[in-house]
């Protein structure tokens, strides 16, 4: 579009001309996603109650598992219980952390801000990606806190730097998939309260898995479910990578699960977004 060359009154004219939005669509999309991420991070930083819950709850859970249950379960896990349970607590914390994405998305839909973003040609995917990336940032912060606390109470992983990197990658993939799933739920929910109810479901998923107890201690049907649900390979990857044991195929199974969930959630969220705002 041609710029209007000379404007009589400078009061409302731009200090700098608008950069040509058509020039490079990719840069444009990237700017939009980064801007939306910055926004979502600021919003989460100021949602103090939710932030405290997201950071304090995993830490509290770690302490509860290690000191309340650790004595009873610890003997059957083959390592110190704190070392066994940390990956599970990290996943619990990912569940809590990502579920607030649903609430954030529902809050957005309540007001007129999505209309404004769309009128600025920001895609629904960019809006959701902002929430999801902020969720990843929040979760990594919570992860760092849990790890620091775990170290303080005796967590001694033996992973190499490469092992750490691989473990963090699997964890990030899991958080991404859960957060995007959560965004899709936010598009379905009619109220932030309903969206918040989703926290419940996701935060229970790690229990029927090898997160807190070995699955061979469970009834057979539950063990069968636990062995084949997505959380278990994620846990097993984290545990083996952090303890420098041979991880086998677990990381690949975990990444396949996360990739599949992510792709599905992105697709479903796209459809739901168009249906919800059109």
């Amino acid at each position: 579009m041609p710029d209007k060359p000379s404007r009589p009154s400078p009061a409302l004219a731009l200090t700098n001309p608008r950069t040509n939005a058509c020039a490079n669509p990719l840069t444009n999309v990237l700017t939009n996603v980064l801007t939306m991420t910055g926004r979502s991070i600021r919003l989460s930083r100021r949602n103090v109650d939710a932030l405290i819950t997201a950071l304090a709850l995993p830490a509290l859970l770690l302490l509860i598992f290690v000191y309340f249950f650790g004595g009873a379960i610890g003997g059957r896990t083959g390592t110190r219980y704190v070392t066994y349970v940390v990956p599970g607590v990290l996943l619990l914390c990912a569940g809590f952390g990502s579920s607030s994405t649903a609430v954030a998305v529902t809050e957005d839909l309540k007001g007129g801000i999505v209309d404004r973003f769309r009128s600025l040609d920001v895609s629904g995917t960019a809006i959701l990606a902002g929430h999801v990336l902020a969720s990843v940032a929040r979760n990594l912060l919570a992860t760092a806190l849990v790890l620091a606390l775990a170290f303080a109470i005796g967590f001694r992983p033996s992973a190499s730097p490469a092992g750490w990197l691989a473990a963090v990658s699997v964890l990030v993939a899991f958080i991404l998939a859960l957060s995007w799933l959560s965004a899709a739920v936010g598009l379905l929910a009619r109220s932030p309260e309903a969206a918040g109810g989703y926290t419940f479901f996701v935060s229970f998923l790690p229990y029927p898995s090898s997160a807190f107890v070995p699955t061979d201690t469970m009834p057979r049907w539950l063990a069968a479910f636990s062995d084949h649900q997505p959380v278990t390979p994620v846990i097993e990857s984290l545990r083996s990578l952090l303890l420098a044991q041979p991880p086998g195929t677990a990381p690949w199974v975990a990444l396949a699960w996360c990739g599949g969930i992510l792709a599905g959630a992105v697709g479903v969220a796209g459809v739901l977004f168009r249906r919800r705002v059109g």
């Binding site: 700098n16 608008r18 950069t19 700017t31 939009n32 910055g38 404004r116 600025l120 920001v122």
Partner: peptide, 8 residues
């Protein structure tokens, strides 16, 4: 934020 989204 709006200005960035508008392409500034």
């Amino acid at each position: 934020m709006m200005a960035r989204l508008a392409g500034l």
